[in-house]
Amino acid sequence: MQNKNKTVIKSKDLLTLFLIHSKLSFNEIIQLTGTPKTSVHRMLGSLEDMGFLDKDEDNLYSLGLLFLQFGQLVADRLDVREIALPVMKKLRDETEEAVNLIIKDGDEAMYVEKLDSTHPVRLYTAVGRRSPLYAGACPRIILAFFPKEEQEQYLKIVDFKAYASGTITDVDKLRLVLEETRQAGYAISKSELEDHTTAIAAPIFNHKGQVVGGLSLAGPDIRFQAERLPEFIKKVKKHAQEVSEKMGYAGDVVYK
């Protein structure tokens, strides 16, 4: 601690007050920090000059717009793939099944990261592969958490195609499945993109609560029997929540 600038530490402690309080007066800051009046006056002046704090006509202090700019930069530079990869490794090691990360790209879903199963019999999914948003658990989890208006726009223009024996190509059935998925907080698919395969997916959200991707387990049907599904669902939701939290998401309703 002796090597750290004490003024910087005190300024950081002062700014931390605004994580709880939206506005504070000069005297309130003194009371909350326990810092001498002259030191608080000096720090407030410097922080205001630099744009870290604003003071209104009632002499109440609040965080300055500079924090909004910094916050947006941090959010914009968060790389979901980089954040998700360590979490994906944990999920793969716990289940020994393939783990995929998908993001929305236009009107399609794109696989941006994958970890193969430890089993000798495995699915082959290439990074860069594209899938329609309506087919497969991971693409559909993104579609399920679209804003309703955006979801309906997609459903009106999409040209349905059967990729495997279980692909959903009826729009009314798809709407029902999307609503069930949204309520449950996860998606499950069987033979939708490839026959004899099962996938389970949960959504990934950013700091604004917007769905930005999907995390899934996938493998041959024989390893996704009914007795294992509850365990897999729980783990997928847990790890998707971890990625979302690292992206700045503060909600948890869909993961319960």
Rank of each mutant, 00 (worst) to 15 (best):
E28A: 10
N3I: 02
V99S: 14
K256M: 15
A126L: 09
Q225G: 04
L91P: 08
D159R: 01
E94F: 01
K156I: 04
I9D: 05
S25A: 09
I142E: 11
D195E: 09
L123K: 04
R130L: 13
K89A: 15
H119E: 05
K10E: 12
A240T: 06
A201D: 08
G64N: 06
K173L: 15
D195Q: 05
S244P: 11
F26M: 12
L176N: 10
F145L: 04
Q183V: 00
P203N: 09
L66Q: 08
S216H: 06
L68Y: 00
L63R: 09
L19P: 00
Y186C: 08
H207C: 06
D252Q: 10
V177F: 15
E192I: 02
A201M: 12
V158F: 07
I168S: 01
P86E: 15
S117I: 03
S62D: 03
Y111N: 13
G214C: 10
K6C: 09
E57T: 02
K237P: 11
F232E: 03
Y111T: 00
V212L: 05
D116M: 03
Y111W: 11
S189K: 03
V127K: 13
S25P: 11
L133G: 04
R122Q: 12
T181A: 13
Y154V: 01
G106A: 13
A164W: 00
V158K: 01
L73E: 15
I233N: 12
K173N: 05
D107T: 02
V171M: 15
V236A: 06
F145I: 01
S11K: 06
L229V: 04
V87I: 11
T33A: 11
I142Y: 13
Q183H: 12
E179A: 10
F52K: 00
A218Q: 05
L78V: 05
A126R: 08
E150Y: 01
V254A: 14
H119A: 14
T198R: 03
G185Q: 14
Y134W: 06
I141G: 09
I141W: 08
T16N: 14
T167K: 00
K10P: 02
F18P: 11
K114Y: 07
D93R: 03
L66H: 01
H41N: 08
D170W: 07
T33L: 07
M1L: 10
S117W: 12
A98P: 13
G219Y: 07
A199T: 03
L68M: 03
Y163P: 02
V243R: 13
D13A: 03
N206V: 12
I20M: 14
L73F: 07
R228I: 15
M247G: 09
L65V: 01
Y134D: 03
D56V: 02
H21D: 04
T95Q: 11
R77G: 01
G213K: 07
D54E: 13
F70D: 12
P36W: 06
N5G: 00
P220S: 11
K12C: 07
V40K: 02
K238M: 12
K246N: 14
E150P: 00
T198N: 10
Q31A: 15
L15E: 03
A162S: 13
T7A: 13
